[in-house]
Design a protein around this nucleic acid. Structure first.
Lengths: 210, 210
DNA sequence: ATGTTATTGTGAAAAATGGAACAATATGAT
DNA sequence: ATCATATTGTTCCATTTTTCACAATAACAT
């Protein structure tokens, strides 16, 4: 099923909202509840579901548990996703320590760094020398890497990661990377998000004044 | 100038790419160089510029330094942006220690937390009690906050931040927040980005097999 | 001076996205 | 059993975003 990035992001949000509703004791949900919960329209919720052949009940809405099963299956959450972190600096370490991934079925299984001082094989999440990445990826069948190295090193690290057989990179370095053929790169860029926010805050302030 | 979020993100990317080109000694740039650098099309580069009245030279392209000036002005980078971080956990602390913001003209001036154990007024970036946020925001004229608290506390914290007079929130909590009127919220969600990546990696693997 | 070429700037076409509307229909009420 | 109602699923329409295409023109070569 090929579709756009926004749609998949919405599916993630629906999923998260559904867990919250479930925790509150809800058993079924209507498209407009979900729309409210994630800030969209009911039409769009139904259309997103329809794209993936998810159907509810005329009157009666959607059964939360079965809906979650379907969304989780679409999002690949029916199996544990093993992820590595490349770069054990502030961001990389924070990600390795972040416990929120566990409940999402995402496990950071190792970190990698060039700096020998950062290596620590006895950590709960071991930090290994970058040279070992290819062997590790192969042995452990890793497909996803988080890249959190300084920008100057990012492209080189990305090339190395791609060569190691990684299929998807979540890039925290503040520059665009050229991915090797067959490797998808998504960017998380706090600076750019901040700049964006600043821009729109400025614009709305100006238009309010005018 | 009102436009869409993606366009502004592209402007940030152009800007970053231009700094790299400048550092390499380039003085002028063509739309297709920039397109290459950020992974877009030359048409789009020119249209983005045209939206903001940025013009180059028929033949001869764009002068990098003047282009940077214009982009920086659009993006509000001609003045230092003071930002606060709410939540001094792993993510919040990593952001406070992250040195990459400085060269972008973004300064994290303080952190805030409810946990008294996290308070530290003598830090280079002090961590203050959450109760002081309103006074601090007012005194220091802060408009942007980064929200990095556990999801359970996020909506409450967001309400507090909005009430304190903040105009834009960069939300790291893994759920959608309802922003008060007049407060813009952008989300950075690593879990969702990872899920997204996993989805598209899965899809391309499947289509490759088929 | 003239012609050629490279590159911009933009208007129009195309594609993608999102939203509204409504027919279909399951549920529950009478 | 019939009717009224609520909610889905989908089609169609509007809007947004991207791409294409090419006229305009500045720089350069001859």
């Amino acid at each position: 099923m090929i579709t756009n990035k926004n749609c998949i992001i919405r599916l993630s949000r629906y999923k998260n909202a559904l867990y919250r509703l479930q925790a509150l004791g809800f058993v079924k949900v209507f498209s407009d509840n979900l729309a409210d919960a994630v800030g969209g329209t009911a039409s769009q919720v139904r259309k997103d579901f329809s794209i993936f052949g998810i159907s509810g009940n005329k009157k009666g809405g959607y059964q939360i548990d079965s809906l979650l099963e379907k969304l989780n299956s679409i999002l690949g959450k029916d199996q544990l996703q093993k992820v590595i972190v490349v770069g054990a600096g502030h961001i990389g370490s924070a990600l390795m320590r972040y416990r929120g991934f566990e409940k999402e079925g995402i496990k950071i299984v190792a970190g990698f760094d060039i700096d020998p001082a950062k290596i620590n094989r006895s950590n709960p999440t071991p930090v290994l020398p970058l040279e070992e990445i290819k062997a590790f990826v192969k042995t452990n069948n890793i497909r996803i890497a988080i890249l959190a190295v300084p920008d100057i090193a990012a492209q080189q690290a990305a090339d190395m990661i791609c060569a190691a057989g990684i299929k998807g990179i979540l890039n925290f370095a503040p520059l665009g990377l050229k991915g090797a053929e067959g490797c998808i790169i998504n960017n998380v860029n706090v600076e750019i998000e901040l700049e964006n926010l600043i821009y729109f805050v400025n614009v709305t302030e100006k238009t309010k004044k005018a």
